[in-house]
């Protein structure tokens, strides 16, 4: 993340150019003729919140608080980090699990720490409607998952964006279905990457399922609270209400698969649906295979 260079104390920002018209002129005179100015007057910022609502200052504070959790609680371990591009846009995708998923913060924290690049986490726009939580989420790099937001981040801004193609079906699945990937939506993430002309970088995560095993879902409660699902987890049974926010200390292993490039021209109005579905399905199969592979190597849920 490029640090904001402290700007040299500039001369007081000039008032509108109309100030240089005749001295007798009133404020209301029209600022014409005007000089050709190439760059618009940008003023000076008092915060480092970008157009997406992310603040590097908040983010680094969050990283400082989260780092002990990342290192000592989850003991996250990466392989294949070199597969994430150091520059330019890339769409990171991962499997999503654990009733209140911990994989998103672990991936965002890990990539930002190891690569020094910001990651924008695309998530359900539900967060945006929540007071306080929504603001913190946004400052911490959360962006509402809208196809156009993803396109802009990847194409116009050349950033890393993280999405979970399973959506809420991933963390909302029963513990008995662990590490079995759900449907990848309608493959929208592939179409976005194609349109933005960026690679998809799949990440498979082992450990997140066991941080918060989901035993039961209440459909009625979900309807009542207007959320995708209301889980009953092992954590809640062990710790009561504290279990909502306390994940179990499962060992996290993360594997970055080679980036998938699509051989199609960017910025098309529409991409062949069958092609999109086919690519999405192939990526899903590769990720599923990688997950099984990682599980074969895993000796212990808690120690890896």
């Amino acid at each position: 993340m490029p640090d904001r260079a402290p700007e040299a104390p500039s001369s007081p920002v000039e008032l509108h150019p109309r100030a240089d018209s005749e001295p007798t002129s009133s404020r209301a005179l029209v600022p014409l003729p005007r000089e050709e100015r190439e760059e618009p007057d940008a003023g000076e910022r008092l915060s480092d919140v970008d157009s997406w609502g992310r603040s590097e200052r908040v983010r680094s504070l969050v990283r400082r608080i989260y780092d002990p959790v990342y290192r000592n609680w989850f003991r996250a371990q990466w392989e294949g980090l070199e597969n994430i591009p150091r520059t330019g846009g890339a769409l990171l995708i991962a499997n999503h699990a654990g009733a209140i998923p911990n994989d998103a913060p672990v991936i965002m924290h890990g990539v930002e720490k190891e690569l020094g690049r910001p990651v924008y986490g695309l998530a359900d726009n539900l967060f945006r409607a929540m007071p306080v939580v929504g603001t913190l989420w946004s400052r911490g790099g959360g962006v509402a998952a809208h196809p156009d937001n993803a396109y802009r981040l990847l194409h116009d801004d050349g950033q890393l964006a993280l999405v979970f193609p399973e959506g809420t079906k991933g963390p909302g699945k029963h513990y008995r279905d662990r590490y079995r990937l759900r449907r990848f939506g309608r493959g929208g993430f592939v179409a976005i990457a194609m349109r933005a002309g960026v690679p998809v970088v799949p990440i498979t995560v082992v450990g997140s399922e066991e941080t918060m095993p989901l035993l039961y879902k209440s459909a009625r409660g979900a309807k009542l609270l207007n959320v995708p699902y209301v889980p009953v987890t092992v954590n809640m049974l062990l710790l009561g209400p504290l279990g909502i926010v306390t994940p179990l200390p499962a060992k996290f292993r993360l594997r970055v698969l080679p980036p998938v490039h699509f051989d199609v021209p960017p910025d098309q109005e529409r991409y062949s649906r069958s092609r999109v579905m086919e690519e999405a399905e192939r990526i899903r199969e590769d990720m599923q295979e990688s997950l099984y592979d990682m599980l074969r190597e895993r000796r212990s849920v808690w120690f890896g």
């Binding site: 050709e36 007057d41 940008a42 003023g43 000076e44 910022r45």
Partner: peptide, 20 residues
């Protein structure tokens, strides 16, 4: 079309005119 102010520049210019 060429803009003369960004969003932040607009707020700054407005703050200056308020001070005046």
């Amino acid at each position: 079309f060429k803009y003369r102010y960004t969003s932040a520049g607009t707020v700054h210019a407005f703050a200056q005119s308020l001070r005046l």
